[in-house]
Design a protein around this nucleic acid. Structure first.
Lengths: 227, 227
DNA sequence: CCATAACGAGAGCACTGCTCTTGTATTTCC
DNA sequence: GGAAATACAAGAGCAGTGCTCTCGTTATGG
């Protein structure tokens, strides 16, 4: 048992070291992660890496999961901090996500870049992937229960029925437009961050990008009805 | 001259065929475009392709330019159609962009996927890349001149000065918040389309995605102040 | 203590982007 | 028209990739 524990511990350490080196490579060389180069840096034969990750894609998936957990944790931490109201909480969460992305753009690109059609996200990723939107949902729900959301006419359409089905998972009588506008806020957040990282603000907003980002996210909060 | 014209014409045809085959490969095999595989399909040695494109990246850049021109043209065409008002024009443009992306997700991924930090867009791409946002700007400006935009308090902050500088390129006394909210609408458009293509709507909105998309873009229009 | 399983290293396969050389058309100049 | 210059296509070759297989070595568990 304790003997077998040695091997298990060594294996865990090796797995972690491979991921660490891979993350470093990703941050410097970009998205084209080379398993052989990682193996060289770790100091082992490339074939030995396959004892830890079945394929290069598996390694990338592991990094993707960690990245999702990274933004998710940043969002949750910011959301947990005391704030004046739910609108401010949403802004704090948004800034935390943006800051996380700016600190490590390659990790952001790993999870929100290249929407490859047909890509089947492994089962392990879908949990961590939902942390940010769930944090947003919690804020909106808190705002709704606190009466901080100004009433609006409910939209109509088939999609509203689908949103209603989602809304029921959060409680009875939750307005579907809140689900829709919360999702919209999440997509807006992703879009604004990606746009900034992609360089779309160049020659337009070069100085106060943080301020412009907040301007955009205030729009998202207003769409939800958060005052 | 006519003799040299033959060679030039053949060259143009070859260039076009390579791009066509490459686009097909991109649509089927995904982003990992193999120059050698393209060469095989065209029926020439891989080294011969380098007479037409200096590198694989150059080929990709050419495809990127064409993709930008593709969405740009779709957006402009939709924007040119008669509409009830500028809000409807913006919705039509948005749907056109979404339809274009749904028809060829890989081309969308090519231009709006993978925000690779430090990637320097070649000079040739920045023109076509701005067609969509310029079409949006034209709609907002038309709405402003037609008095279809309800007045709002101007925001404050350093970024507003930067937006003012941009606004002056469109005419005197154009409110900076219109520039900001127009850009925001563009980023929201990109975010909503990317989210749908990325599969983020799965298990939430599976049926009426078009309706939900319109819901989101109506929010963007409202943020601009388009009634 | 010994069979079993886990592991690391190396060779090898098929593939990639790209360069260089060689031979062949084609254009341009005299 | 013929000769020099140019454009082009093909092939070999280099360095790199992901991945597989084999072969010793080392640790584990009965």
């Amino acid at each position: 048992m304790s003997a077998s524990g040695v091997r298990a511990r060594v294996r865990a350490e090796m797995t972690e070291e491979i991921k660490t080196v891979a993350r470093r490579h990703l941050a410097t060389d970009g998205a084209n992660l080379s398993l052989r180069a990682v193996a060289r840096d770790v100091g082992m034969a490339s074939s030995a890496v396959y004892r830890y990750f079945a394929s290069r894609d598996d390694l990338l998936t592991a990094l993707i999961i960690e990245a999702y957990d990274g933004v998710g944790a940043a969002a949750e931490t910011a959301s947990a901090r005391p704030a004046e109201g739910q609108a401010d909480r949403l802004l704090a969460l948004s800034h935390a996500v943006r800051d996380w992305a700016l600190a490590d753009p390659h990790q952001w690109a790993l999870i929100y870049g290249s929407p490859v059609p047909g890509y089947q996200a492994p089962q392990d990723t879908i949990g961590p992937a939902t942390r940010v939107i769930m944090a947003i949902a919690a804020i909106v729900q808190a705002g709704y229960q606190a009466g901080e959301i100004e009433p609006r006419p409910e939209p109509t359409g088939r999609y509203v029925e689908e949103l209603t089905a989602v809304a029921e998972q959060f409680g009875p009588n939750v307005p579907p437009r809140l689900v829709g506008s919360a999702m919209s806020a999440y997509f807006q957040l992703n879009g604004a961050v990606s746009a900034e990282l992609f360089g779309q603000l160049k020659n337009s907003v070069d100085d106060d990008r943080r301020g412009f980002f907040e301007f955009q996210m205030r729009g998202a909060a207003a769409f939800i009805g958060l005052t």
